[in-house]
Each structure stands twice: as C-alpha cells, then as structure tokens.
C-alpha cells in the first residue's frame, strides 16, 4: 500500500550545459566594461577630492567597485546572475583590475588639482 501507486521514481538526467547566445554574452560584457570604465574614472575623481592617499585610495576603489558590482547584480540583472552571465564573478569583480589604471589616472589628476596646486 505504501509504495504501490507512487509515481515512478524520477530519473533526473543531468542536462547538458546551458546554452548561451554568444552575441548576447558579448553585449553584456561590453555593457559591463563601459560601466566599469566610467565608474573607475568617477571613483578616481572622488578619491582625489576626498584626499585619500596610499592604501586608503586603493581600498576605496576595491570596496566601491564591489558595491557597484552588487548594484549591477541587483538593478541590471534583477538578482539573477546565472541568466545574464556565464560565470558568477562577472558582475562582481569583472573588469575591475583592468580599469585600475584608469582609476589611478583620475585619482592622481583630482588629487593634484584639488590639493597640490596653489590657487
């Protein structure tokens, strides 16, 4: 009685890897890369104006970038990273290292212009 009419035990087959549309993946990466470039520049100017020097500036960049990554995930991807990105780190830290030099450039610029030059 206990198991006679139970539905047949499911034989879940592992599905093959999910198929991503390649142009869409490329487009997403491009959107993220553009966003990261502008964010790096804006963060650099912010760090310079705030008079952050040394380690504090780099920490500011890292923390703020991860926060922006969270915003990307929440607002642009609606919290569903696996739908829009092929790997989980894409929205969080993708392109952060590549744009670090942009950050340094604008950081140096804003820091020098605001705090170093005589008015």
């Amino acid at each position: 009685m206990a198991t006679s009419n139970a539905p047949p035990s499911p034989t879940y087959v592992a599905l093959s890897t999910p198929a991503y549309h390649e142009p869409a993946v490329r487009h997403n990466a491009q959107v993220i890369s553009q966003l990261r470039s502008s964010v790096a520049a804006v963060l650099g100017i912010a760090a310079g104006i705030l008079n952050l020097t040394g380690f504090a500036g780099f920490a500011f960049y890292l923390v703020a970038s991860v926060l922006v990554g969270g915003l990307i995930l929440a607002l642009m991807a609606g919290g569903k990273a696996d739908v829009y990105f092929t790997d989980w780190s894409g929205p969080w830290i993708g392109d952060v290292g590549g744009n670090a030099l942009s950050f340094v450039l604008f950081w140096t610029l804003a820091y020098s212009v605001v705090h170093i030059y005589d008015l």
Binding site: S33, Q34, R36, S37, S38, A40, A41, G98, N99, L101, S102, F103, V104, L105, F106, T108
Partner: peptide, 12 residues
C-alpha cells in the same frame, strides 16, 4: 599614467 589609464576612456 595617461598612456595606461586612458585605455578605458577610449573604449568609452
């Protein structure tokens, strides 16, 4: 600094 930092700006 410009040589390396402007790369991201050029993509924009």
């Amino acid at each position: 600094l410009n040589l390396f930092g402007l790369r991201g700006i050029f993509t924009l």
